[in-house]
Design a protein around this nucleic acid. Structure first.
Lengths: 213, 213
DNA sequence: TAGATTGTTAATCGATTAACAATC
DNA sequence: TAGATTGTTAATCGATTAACAATC
């Protein structure tokens, strides 16, 4: 009854990319697309697209392909983009501000409802219409509102402590930009570690290799 | 003579993570570590660590393990961190500013030498001691200085155009944050596409799944 | 109907893990 | 020397691709 064939993480991580391409197609008025045509656009194989999608159901139609708009909505649903998520940002430094001001998150249903920092000079300051609060008021905040996702743009030295606090308070997801991997082993708290500098280092590697070729 | 067993990208992408953990260990004064101990810390298998490292050479010693400092330096070398790279940022919006002010890149040998934008109001403004220049002066800039890496923090609408320009001018790497995949097929120009929102969507998915469990 | 294209099974490929001889 | 741990080969596992019958 309850199909529980756990979908592998590599597939999940490709979904946002499908979502991006489909959104683009939809916006430019494309109504239907075949796995072959989409594959060419995305530079992957048609097989992979069909396999990936069939982890979640049969969205296509033989002889026709996929309805762009329908498929985009379906993938959005799978990713949870069609329900709204509340978020808070912890760390009102440059990156925290950049994310707070990044409009396209709001568009996808992520609603920023709080910003926290421990720097007294920043408290009360407004970033994208949200007042920065002191980190000590976090607990109090959670009593009134329960944000789904906490975005951590703080130094690695305090990351673990804050993450534990958040877990305790019942946050459901942590999007972690601090330069250290977090892995709460607490059931029900999901974590995404982002390491921007890892990506830059990969780029340096590629450049270095290019030379030797 | 010239061992050319191309290392797979999955391995490359793990190197920065090794580098991070080794740097941490080094800083806390750890002199040697076995693949087993490192594996536990990093939550991977010891086998994987040994396999990965052996793509680049035998850095360890039987019965002893790996010298932390030596290994850290070796991986840094492979990643090209021990030579300096010059960078420019294109797009002086929130994310561009955040990256410009992000100190830890300088530490790793990335030297920011220019910031460009097309918004007249920003021209001349200083961000982390670098004056913002108009995008129209890019060509002129390249005649004097040849930055290795261009960091694209611009809207997707102009990304392709700017990337083509940069390729033409001889940039060696593009670190692309615009919300669209770039794939210059030009030999000698390497690209890293970063999609922050993809990571956030993956997090929503995980949260959504958690519920059903 | 004939043609196109899916959903799905089977084959291949690559990545991970296990095992162990080499050796410090 | 004995113990530990690597480097490396072989076994397993999972992910990707190919193929094709089902079907719109």
């Amino acid at each position: 009854m309850n199909e529980m064939k756990k979908v592998s993480l590599v597939v999940i991580r490709r979904l946002p990319r499908y979502y991006r391409y489909l959104t683009e197609l939809k916006e430019s008025g494309v109504v239907r697309i075949s796995s072959k045509a989409l594959a060419e656009k995305m530079r992957v194989t048609a097989s992979q697209i069909r396999q990936d999608l069939n982890c979640f159901g049969g969205f296509g139609q033989q002889g026709y392909g996929y309805n762009v708009s329908q498929l985009q909505t379906a993938i959005g649903d799978i990713l949870g983009l069609n329900e709204s998520h509340t978020t808070i940002i912890i760390g009102a430094g440059n990156l925290g501000r950049a994310i707070a001001n990044y409009g396209s998150f709001e568009k996808r249903g992520y609603k920023l409802i709080g910003i926290f920092d421990n720097n007294k000079d920043l408290i009360g300051q407004e970033i994208n219409k949200i007042k920065v609060s002191h980190i000590d008021t976090l607990e109090e905040f959670f009593q009134k509102q329960k944000p789904d996702i906490a975005i951590l743009t703080i130094p690695k030295e305090v990351a673990v402590e804050i993450a534990q606090k958040l877990t305790q308070l019942g946050v459901r997801g942590i999007w972690n930009f601090s330069n250290m991997d977090l892995h709460m082993s607490v059931e029900g708290v999901e974590i995404e570690n982002v390491h921007l500098s890892d990506s830059l280092m990969t780029l340096s590697y590629k450049i270095g290799q290019g030379v030797k070729k």
